[in-house]
Amino acid sequence: MMTLHILNKSPEHPRFRLCLEAVGDADQLLLIENAVLALSVEGIKLPGRIMALASDLDARGVSVDGSVDAIHYDGMVALAAAADRVISW
């Protein structure tokens, strides 16, 4: 079962770690809202291919390199549609 985990908490929020622990090998993690701030924090290891919502990155002035997929809302909808289960943390 493929789960899309949508995380909007900043790295300090206790649920940030709770979410990371839940992400399985077959799952996907999408960072939105405050969670995108994690991309500017040294030493946070995010599981799998990193995806983040472009508008939230721009809003917060977080610049990313090629290792991050900056997607838009249509991409987010496509991800959710393709997942067997979606969990919003």
Partner: peptide, 15 residues
């Protein structure tokens, strides 16, 4: 114990 296996038992998870 909170882990992926536990969560896998549920179709919907709300935190």
């Amino acid at each position: 114990h909170y882990d992926q296996d536990l969560l896998a038992n549920y179709l919907h998870v709300v935190c």
